[in-house]
Design a protein around this nucleic acid. Sequence first.
DNA 1: TTATTCAGGACATAAAAGGTCTTTTATATC
DNA 2: GATATAAAAGACCTTTTATGTCCTGAATAA
Lengths: 147, 147
Amino acid sequence: MFRLSKAAEYAIRGVLYLSGKEDTVKPTGIEEIATAQGVPPAYLAKLFQTLGKKGFVRSVRGHDGGFVLTKTPSEISFLDIIEAVEGPIFLNDCLINEGYCANDSVCPVHDVWGEAQKRLLGFFSSCNFKELSESGLKKRKKLKSKS
Amino acid sequence: MFRLSKAAEYAIRGVLYLSGKEDTVKPTGIEEIATAQGVPPAYLAKLFQTLGKKGFVRSVRGHDGGFVLTKTPSEISFLDIIEAVEGPIFLNDCLINEGYCANDSVCPVHDVWGEAQKRLLGFFSSCNFKELSESGLKKRKKLKSKS
DNA sequence: TTATTCAGGACATAAAAGGTCTTTTATATC
DNA sequence: GATATAAAAGACCTTTTATGTCCTGAATAA
């Protein structure tokens, strides 16, 4: 149905939470992240495991363990995290497999998927977590000043 | 996995085929469309049933029956057909349900989904079947002149 | 009236999404 | 060194969605 997976959403919210942390050295436990963002802890743990493998976070086991970002928030894009947990985005099979369409060279639908994908990926790769985190802060401030 | 459904792809290919027909009055059988586009006939029939309900095609039963477009190809967009068979596109649940996020007003992720969706829908609604069909013709001509 | 073709709905299958749980391993503190 | 804590790894489970098929009934042209 053309929808983003919960996995990607949860992972993004998790990374966003870490991006907002002042202390970038002390690990943050998965339980804290999950509670703060309102997502299932066990599931988030799985997701952070793969984020670790892909090199976006570093994990510390044991007492006072948890996760730390390995890059600064401005270096991490939405696309990075989406693709880390869902694998590469392909709007349509014919964009993966050359020869999926019986006659690639005359199929005009091809081009539409290609262009749509290019635009979508371009947009997601232009969104980084520094901006995102700051825009969240700004929103919170605005809300506060109103009340 | 953020992929377009086969349903949408098949429906689009079906409509594209009809768009390329010279004769816009004589109905085209589902079998012909399916064979031409290499898609499962029974499935395509289902899809055209819903396209009929949504008013994009008219069906004629019985001998020499089939389907006819009810609009000219230039009036039908990609988005029309995608949404006809998949329902409205929502990249994320929080774009459907107000209050899905615990704190909408301070969640910055929201905006990203919203913008991405706006762009994607904008693009798909800008693609019409007249252009698409013509670009297919052009491609075929080019290929022919080469051989 | 008969062959053809779509309509409608039930049904089937497989894959993916979304998530839980248990065991093991690493680490800090007492 | 023992113990509590927390992630790693992988097995497992449930529900939903995607992708079809098939059968019966209704419309229609020859």
